[in-house]
Design a protein around this nucleic acid. Structure first.
Length: 456
DNA sequence: TCGGCTACCACCTTTGAACAGA
DNA sequence: ATCTGTTCAAAGGTGGTAGCCG
């Protein structure tokens, strides 16, 4: 589950050294990220991961834990996570599957979770796994705690940002890369919809031990118990009381029954995926999907696909099509193993020279829940279509768009459209003049700060 | 009427301070 | 005086559920 980036300095931007004068500026190259608890994520992904969001903020489970390799030991990096809408739909849970319930709501204020260790040397990040355990999700658009704001009943995918920068300020013009894993896609909910997800959470989350059916819990558990786990070859669904680690091991053990290749198992599992029906619907002209009739073929067989999220699909399609399979992994595993969003990471031949302002106040970053405005490239998807056409995301100011528009592309791209049209729109408009950056223009910087720091 | 959201609950883990012993 | 290990209470993370709200 490792995907390595082999990159040139990524953006049409000045190198760090050219801006800061820091001699220790190197391109991010050969950086690889591993999702540590991939198997657990897969367990959830196969069913359709849901993440509870609450007003005070709720942690993710499974939580994002990665290990990084390929960093330069004595260069400082910043690690961030943000959440990208997977598509432009709102969903509802209908009996036993997710259905499209309409268009997505306008995106809430966009934030990124800054790892509390940031900035730190590459050696620090590489010496152990990097956990985003304390990252919290909320549905409170007025949240003052720096949590990531999401909409309930919408689907998101976490993205990991590796930024070479000595500090938050330098991050603005630093080289960085973005990684994401399809397995970490989830639906934000205020209450669990799929009882199978509830059961998985209870089985694997140590904080939910009290709800386990191991004879020790005194709580009502009838609803979950009445819903047997996915039958047949589905892995990782049996109750395995005990510590989280133990459960996780059990999970892995069950993943590949003796004599059954993992790949085959995965293929079978898909049958039970709640998103499977959506995928099939997407190919069916009578689909419930708003864009189902547009005939977008499913791109991947063992991933849970939403009903033809046009831009996202095309993005994934291209990404995986170009991604060589890591050795030793079956094709199915490979595809779902890793995903780097090429938009940011794609090579751009050269850096533009640019002089940075020497004085620019930054808010204090004392909070461990530091929330910063993410690179304005959310909306995900389409950016990948033509990565090389994009400027450095950090350099693309929000332009005249409202703050709430930071996650999405310009107006029309907010909602689904045929892939070709989507791609064309993004290529033609999203990163064109509307977002152009004016080097050295302090007024622009003031008007389009990289860090909105809504909560600091 | 219904689906989504919130507050509250009991149960559990985690964390860190206080303490004892080496 | 310092370090290490243990204990314990507080803090905080869970899902369940009833009731509210649009």
């Amino acid at each position: 589950y490792i995907f390595s980036c082999h990159l040139q300095p990524t953006f049409n931007m000045p190198s760090s050294s050219s801006v800061t004068g820091n001699p220790e500026s190197y391109p991010l190259s050969n950086v690889s990220i591993t999702l540590e608890n991939m198997e657990l994520w897969k367990c959830f992904h196969d069913i359709g991961t849901e993440m509870i969001i609450t007003k005070p903020g709720r942690r993710m489970f499974p939580h994002c834990k990665i290990s990084i390799a390929g960093l330069l030991p004595y260069v400082k990096y910043i690690l961030m996570v943000d959440m990208v809408p997977v598509d432009s739909f709102r969903y509802k849970w209908n009996k036993d599957k997710w259905e499209v319930a309409g268009k997505a709501e306008p995106q809430p204020p966009c934030r990124s979770y800054l790892h509390p260790d940031s900035p730190a040397l590459g050696s620090h990040w590489m010496k152990q796994t990097v956990s985003f355990l304390k990252m919290k999700l909320t549905n409170n658009t007025l949240d003052q705690n720096g949590h990531l704001i999401l909409h309930s009943m919408h689907r998101y995918n976490p993205r990991f940002h590796v930024v070479q920068a000595d500090d938050l300020f330098a991050m603005r013009w630093s080289v960085f890369q973005i990684f994401s894993f399809p397995e970490t896609t989830f639906t934000a909910v205020t209450a669990y919809q799929n009882t199978k997800i509830t059961k998985l959470k209870i089985d694997h989350n140590p904080f939910a031990k009290g709800f386990r059916d191991d004879g020790t819990n005194t709580k009502r558990y009838s609803v979950v118990l009445r819903t047997p786990c996915v039958p047949g070859p589905h892995r990782c669904c049996r109750v395995s009381p005990g510590p989280y680690n133990q459960s996780f091991e059990d999970c892995e053990e069950e993943e590949s029954p003796r004599g059954v290749p993992k790949e085959n198992t995965a293929v079978k599992e898909e049958r039970y995926s709640p998103w499977r029906s959506q995928q099939e619907s997407a190919q069916n002209p009578s689909s419930v999907s708003p864009v189902g009739s547009e005939g977008q073929a499913p791109v991947f067989s063992n991933e849970q696909l939403v009903p033809v999220p046009a831009s996202y699909q095309s993005y994934r399609s291209q990404e995986f099509a170009k991604t060589p399979s890591p050795p030793g992994l079956g094709s199915g595993s490979v595809r779902s193993a890793f995903q780097r969003q090429g938009s940011n990471a794609a090579a751009v031949p050269e850096h533009r020279t640019l002089r940075a302002p020497t004085t620019m106040a930054l808010p204090s970053a004392s909070s461990s829940h530091a929330a910063v405005a993410p690179p304005p490239e959310h909306g995900a998807s389409a950016h990948v279509a033509r990565p090389s056409a994009r400027p450095h995301p950090l350099y693309a100011p929000y332009g005249s768009e409202s703050a709430l528009g930071q996650w999405s592309g310009p107006g029309p791209s907010q909602y689904p459209h045929p892939p070709a049209a989507a791609a064309a729109r993004h290529v033609a408009g999203e990163y064109s003049g509307a977002h152009s950056y004016t080097p050295g223009n302090m007024v622009d910087w003031g008007q389009h700060p990289l860090f909105s720091f809504p909560c600091w």
